[in-house]
Amino acid sequence: MASKETGIQFLARLGSRPTLSGIEPILFGTEGPHMKDVIEIFGEEGTGKTEMLVHLICRCILPEKWNNIHLGGRAAGVILFDTDSKFSILRLVHLLEKIVSTKMKESENSVTINSSDMDVFIGSCLKRLKIVLCYNSDQLFITLHSVEDLILNDSSISVIMIDSISSFYWMDRQGGGDSTAAQESNMRNITEILNKLVEHYNLTVLVSKSPMFKKKNENQIDFNKLNTDDFINEDMELLHSEFLCKSWQRFVTHRLVLVKLLDSDNQSESFIIGGDCCHGNKKFLINNNGICFMS
């Protein structure tokens, strides 16, 4: 398929999909993420990976402007592969409404919007999101093949998200017997088809990944600092440990690492995110309004 393509594929490849640059300047700078970027969000359980993806979905599917309110979104289509059955659409709708109402108050010209208009608007945003639930890696692989038609026909789709890529790791290892090649074959196939979709249609890929093993050289990191704000200067890459196959490692272009700070009181939980695409680590909180970055 690399050598020849149909007219529709040609147009889909050349046609302009919404760009994501500047979608979240705190994380990706004013330019990023670029087309064909593959960004991995890595963190232990309960460090806000799914929440971070939901936050980015909001930024993608909201339009730039609505009724003279500047929303700062990209009106970009997102295909979300939910392999952990963790995604809550109720949470997404709640956050979308919060963003719109906050921006509405901020905007100078006082616009009032009744609730039915709001529902129609939120509905139009949700149309840009496609949700796929997968329960094993074969299903994920086959569905990645079948979304190609959807991407061909819908020129607004510019992001594929997978939450999370590591869900089927142990099932695949168990299914593959003693041979590492067989254990990793599904992951290799998934990487291959994702790579093809990214290259052909100029998409951006965002995935979450949880660690499956305890970090070996963990003593390089001073975990006592986790109690304080000093942890913000640590090299977050030290927390990362790789376990997926080689071809996946080559495929990933950027990595964000999340860590939860050990606060004495449990009322406010704060997190730190850092990685090669953001300049310095950033601290954030998760509350009812979603992710709030601290300056």
Partner: peptide, 20 residues
């Protein structure tokens, strides 16, 4: 046939919300 039979449903976000 393989794609139709074995891939998961791709659900539109709006429909997903209403069904939930």
């Amino acid at each position: 046939i393989i794609l139709a039979k074995y891939s998961s449903m791709i659900v539109d976000g709006g429909d997903f919300y209403h069904s939930i």
